[in-house]
């Protein structure tokens, strides 16, 4: 499956989804004017990828987004929900919510997202 690469802008994050390495990364800031439109290709790619994902393969999803708007928070919850559904269906997916160690609020956001899922493990990881 082809990689999904979206370069970052001032208001949108870098998207790097590598189906071969089974590594999905979202990095930067996210407050696009139309969050739904920006993330539409992301969900399309992810849905196709997860449907074709073989059992037993571990997928790592990393989100390192230090600023995001309310629309993006809804998108992220949808993303975690989609992943959560697939974990329940037997896929192996591990998510990481990455935040700077001094960004207490960023860490709290990761904990909030943990409450939205039942089966997907979301690890809150801090970086220096």
């Amino acid at each position: 499956m082809e990689k999904l690469l979206i370069e970052p802008t001032r208001s949108s994050p870098r998207i790097r989804f590598d189906g071969q390495a089974h590594l999905l990364e979202v990095t930067g800031e996210s407050y696009p004017e139309d969050a739904a439109m920006f993330y539409r290709p992301v969900f399309e790619w992810l849905t196709r990828y997860l449907e074709g994902l073989a059992a037993g393969v571990e997928v790592r999803v990393k989100l390192d987004v230090n600023y995001f708007n309310s629309s993006t928070s809804k998108i992220f919850m949808d993303l975690f929900e989609l992943l959560d559904d697939h974990v329940r269906a037997g896929k192996t997916i591990v998510a990481e919510w990455i935040s700077h160690e001094e960004n207490d609020m960023g860490i709290e956001f990761g904990e909030e997202f943990q409450e939205c899922v039942t089966d997907l493990p979301i690890h809150v990881v801090t970086r220096a």
């Binding site: 809804k74 956001f109 909030e112």
Partner: peptide, 20 residues
């Protein structure tokens, strides 16, 4: 129920962002 949960999370995140 999911929507209500998401809405709750969204509002808390939004409040915190507003505070920031």
């Amino acid at each position: 129920e999911k929507l209500q949960r998401k809405l709750g999370v969204m509002m808390r995140i939004s409040d915190k962002q507003q505070l920031k």
